[in-house]
Nucleic acid binder design. Structure first.
Length: 449
RNA sequence: GUGGCCGUGGUGAAGCGGUUAACACAUCUGGCUGUGAACCAGACACUCGGGGGUUCAAUUCCCCUCGGUCACCCCA
């Protein structure tokens, strides 16, 4: 039998990692709802033309990274490479814009697919959390979107995020700028690196952040995109810059910042953060304004703005920075039994504990007490409940405090309240507070008696 | 898509032409007949990622392939 493996560029999220992802998404959803955003879930695949028309059929994402396939009905479908196009599509197909309450504010999260060569922080199936605000009427709406993004990062524990902003202007400004750039670079082209010669044809904006010293020095004197921006675009950019700094967010205008999706126009932004380990996971999130996306997809003339975070990247960084508290949920109780009768009694007890929101498991197979205690320990269980023949005969339970290493006998009839009191006790303890629970609880119990 | 490095048991890893393929952790069994530490004694590798080749002999060399990782590219 041949071994099977997970497809290249995919990864399983196991226990801690899955909980870490849940945590990140949970915070992002919570903060988004603070800003009046609602969830919107769209399909994992769409008609391929949706992405060709929105992301852009000349972009790398569509040209070489999209998973495209035909279904049995000969429809040409694509696994979504990003989330914005689907949200825009949904707004149009469901006529969500027919409301007096614009902009529409939505958040989403889910897997995205891009056929790329996997690397650290880059996968073929990866997860994003994003928000879209569609039907903007004010620059404050752009600002709101950015503040929400930053708020989420702060709520996750990020400090010192590098925020870069830029304005791409409208599409005609961008074309004018590309022409100007090419005119500037043309005479120098023979002296430049091979990559830049390729960029010249494909994406001249990228020539600006070449790392080859010679080329980088040329970039310093290159024409500026601001020379081609309308007054309104310039004012918007300055407004955002001042506002973010005014809120204490360290922001820089990076005129070389560009994005790989064609629908962006006007203000764009990107967040990055390199952890102390020095590992560079790339941009952790980014987004911007899209003036024409909705109308080009056949909807009304609505302006939108949004962003997306890469959850894998957020997770990896938070993990390196030890910002994720252990996501492990230790058992409250671990039940150890010996013999059929004991197993029956133990199972009834376990079942009733669970209905009372006590977390626990028991082993149903016969193993040595030694290994069962080892399992209880590795699960981080607070208490062990032992039921063997002695206990069954005497109708009691041996209740062991695993951290204090003390145990006592508790009658069958009193075990449920006994556990509930310890686990849920009126006086609320923090779960990470090792010493408190057992000691205090027992003391108080004695005092009450 | 281009180039570099890597792939040994559940895990971390030695070995780099002929070895019983170390060692450590984990797991299991016993010493302790119902109790988690430590200690002691044992046990556990049906493909050394997969396929092919060179060789008397390959985990060790070569090729292909799959996967990971790094740089480029691109982006979350």
């Amino acid at each position: 039998m041949k071994n099977i493996s997970a497809p290249k560029g995919t990864h399983d999220l196991i226990k801690d990692e899955a909980r870490g992802f849940e945590h990140i998404i949970g915070i992002a959803r919570l903060v988004s709802s603070l800003y009046g955003f609602d969830p919107l879930e769209t399909p994992l695949f769409e008609n391929a033309t949706l992405f060709e028309r929105s992301v852009g059929d000349a972009t790398d994402i569509v040209q070489k990274e999209m998973y495209v396939f035909k279904d049995k009905g000969k429809r040409t479908l694509a696994l979504r490479p990003e989330g914005t196009a689907s949200i825009a599509r949904s707004v149009i197909t469901n006529k969500l814009y027919a409301t007096n309450d614009l902009p529409l504010r939505f958040y989403y999260d889910g897997t995205m697919y891009r056929y790329e060569r996997p690397q650290l922080g880059r996968y073929r199936e990866f997860r994003q959390f994003g928000i879209e605000s569609i039907g903007l009427t004010s620059i404050f709406h752009d600002l709101e979107v950015m503040l929400l993004a930053i708020h989420i990062l702060q709520a996750l524990g990020f400090e010192g995020i590098n925020t870069k902003i830029n304005s791409l202007g409208d599409s005609s400004a961008r074309e004018r700028y590309k022409t100007a750039l090419k005119a500037y670079y043309e005479p120098h082209l023979p002296t430049m690196c091979a990559d830049c010669q390729m960029r010249y044809e494909k994406n001249p904006l990228r020539m600006l952040d070449c790392k080859v010293p010679h080329d980088a020095s040329l970039a310093l004197k290159a024409p500026h995109i601001s020379e081609h921006l309308s007054k309104e675009d310039k004012d918007d950019l300055n407004f955002i810059f001042d506002a973010l700094n005014g809120f204490g967010i360290n922001t820089t205008i990076d005129t070389t910042l560009v994005r790989g999706l064609d629908y962006y126009s006007g203000i764009i932004f990107e967040f990055s953060y390199i952890p102390a380990s020095g590992k560079d996971y790339g941009a952790i999130g980014g987004g911007g304004r899209y003036d024409k996306l909705v109308s080009e997809l056949g909807g009304p003339d609505l302006v939108g703005a949004g962003f997306a975070f890469g959850i894998e990247r957020l997770y990896h960084i938070l993990n390196e920075e030890k910002k994720l508290e252990s996501a492990v949920f230790p058992d409250d109780v671990y039940i150890i039994t010996k013999g059929d009768e004991a197993r029956n009694d133990g199972f009834s007890l376990l079942t009733s504990l669970r209905t009372h929101e006590v977390r626990g498991v028991m082993a149903f197979e016969d193993k040595s007490f030694k290994s069962l205690f080892k399992i209880a320990e590795s699960r981080g269980a607070k208490y062990a409940i032992i039921i063997g023949q002695e206990e069954v005969d005497g109708e009691f339970v041996t209740f062991r405090d695993l951290s204090a290493r003390t145990q006592e006998k508790v009658e069958y009839g009193k075990i449920l309240p006994h556990v509930l009191k310890l686990v849920h006790g009126e006086h609320h303890h923090h779960h990470d507070d090792d010493e408190c629970c057992c000691g205090n609880c027992n003391d108080e119990e004695k005092e009450e008696k």
